[in-house]
């Protein structure tokens, strides 16, 4: 037996799951909502999605080339960033907005800190926060009418609510996305379909979206109506704005959320709380972006203090106590 043998440390078998597979799963989960966006808002939406993804991928490749690193765009993480950024933008936004936003997301928010695994805020949301500050008028105002694709000057339903109005679309329209809003946030059914896919394939933990949306629902129900408790419209709070998109696809980003199940629940609840605070008492109609970004910054602290229950320690404490008692 003169065979050459492979010698490595244990374990000698590994799960078939890979980083690329996980990222591809997220891309697949986003596709229904992207298709929905194109159906609702037309070619504009498609162009924004393409511009954003291409810009993100090219930016990552160029940056890695310029800094003499291995080019890793094949892992699909830049594709996700591009898709997510595009989905948070209004369908009428000029194309330079997603282009610049993606470059910022990839280079400033992700690569400068060390690339995949080392960034501390969600790159897509950092990109959105940047373009929102850079071009407030177009990012917060370039709304299109679904299906007719006409530019509309009226505010989004969330802004209507914020202004104290009650004239918002009906439940079915909200579910299929027949309302003005960011291009990827309106098709609730398709987003939930993608979210379900991520849950079933165990790519994401249910705790984050449940904590997020649950907090938003309960909080709005309690405090949503000025001057009266327990009369707010919790359901609309979830269906309007980017809560579903954020809760399932952004708050669940591995790199920028806690590693423990308990930590992820806290992350979800925290992001829901900040969103609620901004929506009810802040200056903006929408707070999902800042809710998640804020919790991204809290993640290292959560990871430091929220640890799992170690095996064997409860008993240890009891045993020590009883041993001390005997002494």
């Amino acid at each position: 037996m003169g065979e050459k043998l492979i010698v490595t440390p244990s374990p000698h078998i590994k799960s078939p799951r890979t980083v690329k597979g996980v990222m591809l799963g997220v891309v697949i989960s986003l596709l229904p909502a992207c298709v929905g966006a194109v159906v609702l808002f037309g070619m504009n939406a498609l162009l924004i999605l393409i511009t954003s993804v291409v810009s993100a991928v090219v930016a990552e490749a160029l940056w890695q080339r310029a800094t003499k690193q291995e080019i890793t765009v094949g892992d699909f993480s830049a594709v996700i960033t591009g898709l997510l950024l595009a989905m948070t933008l209004p369908p009428g936004v000029p194309l330079y907005v997603p282009a610049v936003g993606s470059v910022f997301a990839i280079v400033i928010a992700k690569q400068i800190f060390g690339g995949l695994g080392s960034n501390f805020v969600n790159p897509a949301l950092a990109g959105r926060a940047f373009v929102l500050a850079a071009w407030p008028m177009s990012v917060a105002g370039a709304w299109l009418n679904p299906l007719t694709h006409d530019a509309v000057s009226s505010p989004t339903p969330l802004a209507v609510l914020k202004g104290g109005g009650t004239n918002i679309p009906g439940l079915w329209d909200l579910l299929i996305g027949n309302r003005t809003g960011s291009l990827g946030e309106t098709s609730i059914i398709l987003l939930l379909l993608g979210g379900l896919f991520l849950l079933v394939t165990k790519i994401i933990d249910w705790r984050t979206p449940v904590g997020f949306l649950g907090t938003l629902f309960v909080g709005t129900w309690i405090f949503g109506k000025p001057g009266a408790l327990f009369q707010g419209d919790g359901l609309s709070a979830i269906l309007l704005g980017g809560a579903v998109l954020g809760a399932f696809f952004m708050a669940t980003d591995y790199v920028t959320s806690p590693v423990t199940p308990k930590g992820r629940l806290i992350f979800g609840i925290g992001a829901g709380l900040v969103t609620l605070l901004i929506r009810l008492w802040g200056g903006y109609p929408e707070g999902v972006t800042y809710g998640i970004l804020f919790m991204n910054l809290m993640t290292p602290i959560i990871d430091r203090f929220v640890v799992p229950k170690y095996y064997g320690y409860e008993h240890d404490a009891r045993a020590r106590k009883s041993a001390e008692g005997k002494r």
Partner: peptide, 20 residues
């Protein structure tokens, strides 16, 4: 590849540790 902090090791650990 670099750790993406997915937390799978944490959920898998039978000792309740944080392998990551």
């Amino acid at each position: 590849l670099p750790c993406i902090k997915c937390g799978r090791c944490v959920e898998a650990c039978p000792m309740g540790l944080l392998p990551v």
